[in-house]
């Protein structure tokens, strides 16, 4: 499972846009929660590690939602590709 997390890490490092990186990091966070449960099973302390995994999954969800909100609020980063495009009239100035 750790081996399968490496190609996702590749996308984190080389992602063409920031949102690609966030998606890959979200996936790695989910898999880390699962990996914590598996580690707890290995060491016969599943009761303790399961609580860690629960907290980690919650934090991961909150983090990705915060990132999504942040990218919705900032102005588009791709407008410089098309210099003719004007910002929409009435769009809130941020």
């Amino acid at each position: 499972m750790f081996v399968l997390m490496l190609p996702v890490m590749y996308r984190v490092v080389l992602g063409p846009t920031a949102l690609d990186r966030i998606v890959a990091i979200n996936m790695i966070g989910t898999k880390t929660a699962v990996l914590l449960v598996v580690i707890g099973q290995f060491f016969d302390q599943a009761g303790m590690f399961v609580d860690f995994a629960l907290a980690y999954a919650l934090l991961n969800f909150v983090g990705s939602l915060a990132a999504a909100r942040y990218f919705k609020r900032t102005r588009p980063i791709h407008h410089d590709l098309n210099p003719d495009s004007q910002p929409e009239p009435g769009a809130p100035a941020i």
């Binding site: 949102l19 990705s64 939602l65 999504a68 990218f71 588009p76 980063i77 791709h78 407008h79």
Partner: peptide, 11 residues
């Protein structure tokens, strides 16, 4: 949420 953010971002 991330998909919506990407769409608003002009992807």
């Amino acid at each position: 949420a991330l998909m919506e953010a990407g769409y608003d971002d002009g992807m």
